[in-house]
Computed example of a mutant assay.
Amino acid sequence: MIIFKKEVDAVFDRDPAARSYLEVVLLYAGLQALVMHRIAHALYRMRVPFLPRLLSQVSRFFTGVEIHPAAQIGDGLFIDHGMGVVIGETSVVGKNVTLYQGVTLGGTGKEKGKRHPNIGDNVVIGTGAKVLGNITVGDNSYIGANAVVLKDVPPNATVVGVPGRITRQDGKKIDRLLDHIHVLDPLMQSLEDLEERVKDLEKKLK
Protein backbone atom coordinates (compact mmCIF):
# COMPACT_ATOMS: atom_id res chain seq x y z
CA MET A 1 0.00 0.00 0.00
CA ILE A 2 3.04 2.24 0.37
CA ILE A 3 2.97 2.76 -3.41
CA PHE A 4 -0.32 4.57 -2.83
CA LYS A 5 1.21 6.86 -0.22
CA LYS A 6 0.04 10.04 -2.00
CA GLU A 7 -3.55 8.83 -1.92
CA VAL A 8 -3.31 7.83 1.76
CA ASP A 9 -1.70 11.18 2.59
CA ALA A 10 -4.55 12.91 0.73
CA VAL A 11 -7.06 11.26 3.05
CA PHE A 12 -5.25 12.48 6.17
CA ASP A 13 -4.82 15.93 4.62
CA ARG A 14 -8.47 16.43 3.67
CA ASP A 15 -10.57 14.33 6.04
CA PRO A 16 -10.58 15.40 9.70
CA ALA A 17 -12.26 12.09 10.60
CA ALA A 18 -9.21 10.04 9.56
CA ARG A 19 -7.64 8.56 12.70
CA SER A 20 -5.09 5.95 11.73
CA TYR A 21 -3.29 4.42 8.77
CA LEU A 22 -4.98 1.06 9.35
CA GLU A 23 -8.43 2.66 9.48
CA VAL A 24 -7.86 4.56 6.23
CA VAL A 25 -6.53 1.53 4.35
CA LEU A 26 -9.22 -0.88 5.52
CA LEU A 27 -12.31 1.30 5.83
CA TYR A 28 -12.13 4.11 3.26
CA ALA A 29 -14.11 3.02 0.21
CA GLY A 30 -12.82 5.88 -1.93
CA LEU A 31 -9.23 4.81 -1.36
CA GLN A 32 -10.06 1.16 -2.02
CA ALA A 33 -11.81 2.07 -5.26
CA LEU A 34 -8.80 4.11 -6.36
CA VAL A 35 -6.35 1.28 -5.59
CA MET A 36 -8.51 -1.13 -7.59
CA HIS A 37 -8.63 1.39 -10.42
CA ARG A 38 -4.85 1.68 -10.53
CA ILE A 39 -4.64 -2.08 -11.03
CA ALA A 40 -7.45 -2.17 -13.60
CA HIS A 41 -5.96 0.79 -15.48
CA ALA A 42 -2.55 -0.89 -15.69
CA LEU A 43 -4.16 -4.02 -17.10
CA TYR A 44 -6.20 -1.91 -19.52
CA ARG A 45 -3.06 -0.24 -20.83
CA MET A 46 -1.52 -3.69 -21.31
CA ARG A 47 -4.57 -4.48 -23.49
CA VAL A 48 -5.67 -7.33 -21.24
CA PRO A 49 -9.25 -8.16 -22.31
CA PHE A 50 -12.28 -8.34 -20.01
CA LEU A 51 -10.39 -8.40 -16.68
CA PRO A 52 -10.06 -4.60 -16.27
CA ARG A 53 -13.82 -4.10 -16.62
CA LEU A 54 -14.46 -7.03 -14.31
CA LEU A 55 -12.25 -5.47 -11.65
CA SER A 56 -13.98 -2.12 -12.02
CA GLN A 57 -17.39 -3.73 -11.56
CA VAL A 58 -16.24 -5.74 -8.53
CA SER A 59 -14.90 -2.50 -7.08
CA ARG A 60 -18.22 -0.78 -7.79
CA PHE A 61 -20.08 -3.58 -5.98
CA PHE A 62 -17.97 -3.29 -2.84
CA THR A 63 -17.32 0.47 -2.72
CA GLY A 64 -20.19 2.18 -4.56
CA VAL A 65 -17.63 3.97 -6.73
CA GLU A 66 -17.57 3.31 -10.49
CA ILE A 67 -14.38 4.22 -12.34
CA HIS A 68 -13.91 3.05 -15.91
CA PRO A 69 -10.50 1.36 -16.24
CA ALA A 70 -9.58 3.66 -19.15
CA ALA A 71 -10.00 6.84 -17.08
CA GLN A 72 -6.74 8.70 -16.42
CA ILE A 73 -6.33 9.78 -12.81
CA GLY A 74 -3.45 11.79 -11.36
CA ASP A 75 -1.81 11.42 -7.96
CA GLY A 76 -3.48 12.51 -4.76
CA LEU A 77 -7.15 11.98 -5.69
CA PHE A 78 -9.40 11.98 -2.63
CA ILE A 79 -12.90 10.52 -2.94
CA ASP A 80 -14.80 11.44 0.22
CA HIS A 81 -17.38 8.83 1.26
CA GLY A 82 -17.53 7.78 -2.37
CA MET A 83 -21.00 6.30 -2.73
CA GLY A 84 -22.43 7.13 -6.15
CA VAL A 85 -19.25 8.58 -7.65
CA VAL A 86 -18.94 7.82 -11.39
CA ILE A 87 -15.86 8.56 -13.51
CA GLY A 88 -16.39 7.89 -17.21
CA GLU A 89 -14.13 6.19 -19.74
CA THR A 90 -12.41 9.20 -21.31
CA SER A 91 -12.20 11.31 -18.15
CA VAL A 92 -8.84 12.86 -17.31
CA VAL A 93 -8.40 13.86 -13.66
CA GLY A 94 -5.44 15.97 -12.55
CA LYS A 95 -3.43 15.93 -9.35
CA ASN A 96 -4.78 16.53 -5.84
CA VAL A 97 -8.43 16.53 -6.90
CA THR A 98 -11.22 16.07 -4.33
CA LEU A 99 -14.54 14.43 -5.23
CA TYR A 100 -17.41 14.27 -2.77
CA GLN A 101 -20.17 11.65 -2.80
CA GLY A 102 -22.50 11.45 -5.77
CA VAL A 103 -20.18 13.23 -8.23
CA THR A 104 -20.47 12.25 -11.89
CA LEU A 105 -17.82 12.88 -14.52
CA GLY A 106 -19.96 11.75 -17.43
CA GLY A 107 -20.81 12.09 -21.09
CA THR A 108 -23.74 13.85 -22.71
CA GLY A 109 -24.84 11.31 -25.29
CA LYS A 110 -23.85 8.36 -27.40
CA GLU A 111 -20.99 10.03 -29.25
CA LYS A 112 -17.74 8.11 -29.67
CA GLY A 113 -14.22 9.26 -28.82
CA LYS A 114 -13.44 11.89 -26.18
CA ARG A 115 -16.72 12.54 -24.43
CA HIS A 116 -15.90 13.00 -20.75
CA PRO A 117 -14.41 15.96 -18.88
CA ASN A 118 -10.83 17.00 -18.19
CA ILE A 119 -10.39 18.03 -14.56
CA GLY A 120 -7.39 20.21 -13.70
CA ASP A 121 -5.14 20.07 -10.65
CA ASN A 122 -6.36 20.97 -7.14
CA VAL A 123 -10.03 20.98 -8.18
CA VAL A 124 -12.80 20.37 -5.63
CA ILE A 125 -16.13 18.96 -6.87
CA GLY A 126 -18.92 19.13 -4.31
CA THR A 127 -21.56 16.59 -3.36
CA GLY A 128 -23.90 15.55 -6.17
CA ALA A 129 -22.28 17.72 -8.82
CA LYS A 130 -22.39 16.59 -12.47
CA VAL A 131 -19.63 17.57 -14.88
CA LEU A 132 -20.70 16.39 -18.31
CA GLY A 133 -19.18 16.24 -21.77
CA ASN A 134 -15.78 16.91 -23.32
CA ILE A 135 -15.13 20.07 -21.31
CA THR A 136 -12.25 21.34 -19.18
CA VAL A 137 -12.38 22.44 -15.56
CA GLY A 138 -9.37 24.67 -14.88
CA ASP A 139 -6.86 24.28 -12.08
CA ASN A 140 -7.81 25.33 -8.54
CA SER A 141 -11.52 25.55 -9.35
CA TYR A 142 -14.44 24.65 -7.12
CA ILE A 143 -17.69 23.06 -8.35
CA GLY A 144 -20.47 23.61 -5.83
CA ALA A 145 -22.75 20.89 -4.51
CA ASN A 146 -25.38 19.69 -7.03
CA ALA A 147 -24.09 22.00 -9.78
CA VAL A 148 -24.48 20.79 -13.37
CA VAL A 149 -21.49 21.86 -15.46
CA LEU A 150 -21.79 21.69 -19.25
CA LYS A 151 -19.23 24.30 -20.34
CA ASP A 152 -15.53 24.95 -19.77
CA VAL A 153 -14.58 26.42 -16.39
CA PRO A 154 -11.59 28.79 -16.16
CA PRO A 155 -8.92 28.33 -13.49
CA ASN A 156 -9.55 29.70 -9.98
CA ALA A 157 -13.31 29.84 -10.51
CA THR A 158 -16.32 28.71 -8.54
CA VAL A 159 -19.35 27.20 -10.29
CA VAL A 160 -22.76 26.91 -8.68
CA GLY A 161 -26.32 26.14 -9.76
CA VAL A 162 -28.20 24.37 -12.55
CA PRO A 163 -26.98 24.99 -15.15
CA GLY A 164 -23.63 25.91 -13.65
CA ARG A 165 -22.90 29.64 -13.33
CA ILE A 166 -19.34 30.84 -12.96
CA THR A 167 -18.16 33.28 -10.35
CA ARG A 168 -14.67 34.08 -9.11
CA GLN A 169 -13.37 34.21 -5.58
CA ASP A 170 -11.34 37.41 -6.19
CA GLY A 171 -9.04 35.47 -8.50
CA LYS A 172 -7.67 33.50 -5.55
CA LYS A 173 -7.02 29.79 -5.37
CA ILE A 174 -9.93 27.88 -3.83
CA ASP A 175 -9.10 26.17 -0.54
CA ARG A 176 -9.58 22.40 -0.78
CA LEU A 177 -11.16 22.57 2.68
CA LEU A 178 -13.61 25.25 1.57
CA ASP A 179 -16.63 25.88 3.76
CA HIS A 180 -19.38 24.65 1.44
CA ILE A 181 -21.94 26.97 3.01
CA HIS A 182 -20.22 30.20 2.01
CA VAL A 183 -19.98 29.89 -1.76
CA LEU A 184 -20.72 32.95 -3.87
CA ASP A 185 -23.71 32.59 -6.18
CA PRO A 186 -23.46 35.02 -9.12
CA LEU A 187 -27.24 35.10 -9.60
CA MET A 188 -27.81 36.03 -5.97
CA GLN A 189 -25.05 38.61 -6.19
CA SER A 190 -26.78 40.20 -9.19
CA LEU A 191 -30.14 40.24 -7.40
CA GLU A 192 -28.59 41.80 -4.29
CA ASP A 193 -26.89 44.46 -6.44
CA LEU A 194 -30.19 45.16 -8.18
CA GLU A 195 -31.96 45.45 -4.83
CA GLU A 196 -29.39 47.98 -3.64
CA ARG A 197 -29.84 50.03 -6.83
CA VAL A 198 -33.63 50.03 -6.35
CA LYS A 199 -33.21 51.25 -2.76
CA ASP A 200 -30.89 54.04 -3.93
CA LEU A 201 -33.42 55.11 -6.60
CA GLU A 202 -36.25 55.08 -4.05
CA LYS A 203 -34.20 57.34 -1.77
CA LYS A 204 -33.52 59.76 -4.62
CA LEU A 205 -37.20 59.88 -5.60
CA LYS A 206 -38.17 60.76 -2.04
Rank of each mutant, 00 (worst) to 15 (best):
118 N>C: 14
119 I>Q: 13
87 I>Y: 03
8 V>G: 06
100 Y>A: 03
163 P>G: 04
159 V>W: 10
59 S>W: 07
8 V>Q: 06
189 Q>N: 11
143 I>P: 05
76 G>A: 05
88 G>T: 03
137 V>M: 09
74 G>R: 04
94 G>K: 02
148 V>P: 06
163 P>M: 04
18 A>C: 01
77 L>C: 04
183 V>F: 02
65 V>Q: 07
191 L>W: 06
166 I>Q: 08
52 P>S: 09
102 G>D: 01
183 V>H: 02
19 R>G: 09
60 R>L: 11
29 A>T: 14
151 K>I: 00
46 M>Q: 14
201 L>C: 00
197 R>Y: 07
106 G>N: 01
39 I>Q: 02
85 V>H: 00
104 T>Q: 06
190 S>L: 14
43 L>G: 02
201 L>E: 01
92 V>F: 11
8 V>L: 12
197 R>Q: 13
184 L>R: 14
83 M>L: 10
135 I>T: 07
89 E>P: 11
149 V>D: 04
67 I>E: 03
22 L>H: 10
33 A>T: 06
71 A>K: 07
97 V>A: 13
9 D>T: 12
42 A>I: 01
90 T>D: 06
126 G>S: 13
167 T>I: 12
183 V>L: 13
157 A>L: 06
121 D>H: 11
185 D>T: 06
47 R>Y: 10
62 F>V: 15
121 D>R: 07
200 D>R: 15
181 I>D: 09
129 A>V: 12
173 K>E: 15
31 L>K: 14
155 P>M: 03
138 G>Q: 05
42 A>E: 05
12 F>Q: 02
186 P>K: 08
48 V>E: 12
64 G>I: 09
162 V>Y: 12
4 F>W: 12
195 E>V: 03
161 G>A: 07
43 L>R: 07
159 V>K: 10
113 G>N: 13
122 N>K: 12
97 V>N: 14
76 G>H: 04
82 G>N: 02
108 T>N: 14
156 N>E: 00
83 M>P: 00
106 G>Y: 03
203 K>M: 06
157 A>K: 09
199 K>A: 11
60 R>W: 13
126 G>V: 14
36 M>L: 11
42 A>L: 08
130 K>E: 06
196 E>G: 14
61 F>L: 11
153 V>W: 04
51 L>C: 00
189 Q>D: 14
141 S>M: 12
167 T>P: 04
8 V>R: 08
86 V>C: 01
84 G>S: 04
105 L>G: 05
124 V>Y: 10
50 F>A: 12
52 P>R: 07
199 K>L: 08
115 R>C: 08
135 I>F: 04
38 R>P: 10
97 V>S: 13
44 Y>E: 05
37 H>Q: 02
115 R>P: 09
135 I>G: 06
153 V>C: 04
152 D>L: 07
109 G>E: 10
46 M>E: 09
180 H>A: 11
